[in-house]
Design a protein around this nucleic acid. Sequence first.
DNA 1: GTAGCTGCAAAAGATTTGCGACCAA
DNA 2: TTGGTCGCAAATCTTTTGCAGCTAC
Lengths: 139, 139
Amino acid sequence: MTSRVESLCLEKGLKMTGQRRIIAKVLSESDDHPDAGELHRRAAAIDSRISLATVYRTVRLFEEVNVLERRDFGDGRARYEEATESHHDHLIDIKTGRVIEFQSKEIETLQRDVAQKLGYRLIDHRLELYVESISDGDG
Amino acid sequence: MTSRVESLCLEKGLKMTGQRRIIAKVLSESDDHPDAGELHRRAAAIDSRISLATVYRTVRLFEEVNVLERRDFGDGRARYEEATESHHDHLIDIKTGRVIEFQSKEIETLQRDVAQKLGYRLIDHRLELYVESISDGDG
DNA sequence: GTAGCTGCAAAAGATTTGCGACCAA
DNA sequence: TTGGTCGCAAATCTTTTGCAGCTAC
């Protein structure tokens, strides 16, 4: 009944409207990286009275309270995913568009080192690997 | 007289118009990461007859022939810089917006390993470090 | 010459916002 | 009750494009 994302929102003290509950549910059930239009489509399938403007307002709100993470894979629109405790990065198959999540403690350590060497403290980072399947290459 | 970027364009066999020569010059003299509007402003300072549409068409052309690299720092507009032989990544000071370029062979090796472990060949990547100066922190 | 380039202004696509009606706490 | 939220449509912002005239090769 109460979705994972909705619980998070309640913890943060957000007022939960019908629309927000639906968007929270859609996000909880998505394990891909939908954009605003796709979220709207999925939400509208549950309740067609929901507007795209509300989707935009809601994802912005959810992002501000760290319930949601905004991603930008360089195709001109933002994509969203549930925030996770453990950070992860993305590997994007340029042929199929498939997105795989991964973690690398080694890379993160090196990032911190690079920042420190230049006199900075690492606050956040973005890493995307654009790849091609080894089996369907030009070999 | 002939800018670095213009030489590159000639090597690639591009037809060089007055507008392209000016944009090439602006790019050659820029060591930051200007967006299309900023390029237009700098180009228009040399010859005010240049249009924003031409700037967009030109950066797209230059990018296609690998004279220019398009960057996306997540603020909704693309930024451009001269293509370099050696790859580099970016460190962005979130307080000042200053962008510093860096290289890390170690990180790139690890990226290749990550992709390979998941069954992919690394084609390209994007890495940005968002940082804060150590001296003006919250300490 | 002519294929390709340019400026202008309109179009397109993503996202934001003003406003009056509506609803959760 | 009432401040926050919603839907709608219009506005914004970045980037692209149709068209008629112009220019490099």
